[in-house]
Design a protein around this nucleic acid. Structure first.
Length: 260
DNA sequence: ATGTCTCGGCTCCCGAGA
């Protein structure tokens, strides 16, 4: 089963580029972030006619996550547990049947957190605490799961072309990386780094300052796999060439191939 | 390089967020 994550930066703006990539990459599941659309306005038909089931959790203007799946989506839940007052649409879960086991899919758009320090950064760290608790719960339930999306975290210096310029940024400051490391230390596997070592692998290039042409990128879109799913990992790749196409998102798709 | 893109208000530009 091929599962991709892709921050599309607006479904309306990506109404041609997203289907084009789906037709070519043919993932079984696409976990999307920043749909920037309310659920009623999401153009589900475009994906349904390609054989995808569609589950969205959107809001007006900002954020918003979705799951497209060729296998039926069951037990869809929306919103990250732990704060009923949180109105930002950043989390969606659904179950798909693998060849042998059910697989719980978690799609996330982790808060950016800038400027740091400040209230937006406090919200990011609090959100990551809730994410840690959700991962602990899923591990305790022993249901195979993965968590995929835009983590807005640069895990290590090698994941940025210019790490020094990110030193005090919410995506890279020590507290952010420590919170991400806590997740890993629960026993989760970061899929890309389980397969590929070394610098120069990025999933985001800013629209500004010719970042793409200078390859001034960062790697912030990740898959975290529970132990059972880590055992099924066959491949993990970044479709970086997508960034060079017409009307691109500032992120590119990252995908895993699972023996499931 | 002060370098871009997206969304929405109620639009013929601007602020906010990234």
């Amino acid at each position: 089963m091929k599962i991709a994550t892709f921050n599309i930066n607006g479904i309306k703006a990506r109404i041609e580029a997203l289907p084009a990539w789906l037709d070519e990459a043919t993932p079984d599941v696409a976990i999307l972030q920043e749909i920037k659309s309310v659920d009623e306005a999401f153009p589900a038909e475009i994906f349904e006619e390609r054989g995808y089931n569609v589950a969205t959790h959107g809001q007006k203007s900002f954020n918003g996550v979705a799951i497209l799946s060729k296998r039926p989506l069951e037990d869809v839940t929306r919103g990250l547990p732990g704060d009923d007052s949180d109105e930002q649409a950043r989390w969606i879960e659904a179950t798909v049947m693998g060849d042998t086991h059910p697989l719980r899919l978690c799609g996330l758009y982790l808060p950016n957190g800038n400027p740091a320090p400040g209230p937006k950064y406090d919200y990011k760290l609090a959100w990551m605490e809730r994410l840690l608790k959700r991962a602990e719960t899923l591990l305790a339930e022993e249901t195979p799961f993965l968590m995929a999306g835009d983590y807005n975290i640069i895990p290590q210096a090698e994941d940025a072309a210019k790490p020094d310029s990110w030193r005090d940024d919410a995506l890279f400051r020590l507290e952010s990386r420590t919170a991400f490391r806590k997740l890993i230390n629960l026993g989760l596997t970061e899929a890309f780094r389980a397969r590929t070592q070394g610098p120069g692998h990025y999933s985001f290039w800013d629209y500004q300052a010719g970042a793409w042409n200078r390859n001034n990128g960062i790697r912030i879109d990740h898959f975290l796999l529970c132990p059972q799913v880590a055992d099924m990992l066959q491949d993990c790749q970044i479709d970086m060439e997508v960034r060079g196409r017409d009307k691109p998102s500032d992120h590119v798709p990252v995908w895993v191939e699972l023996a499931a």
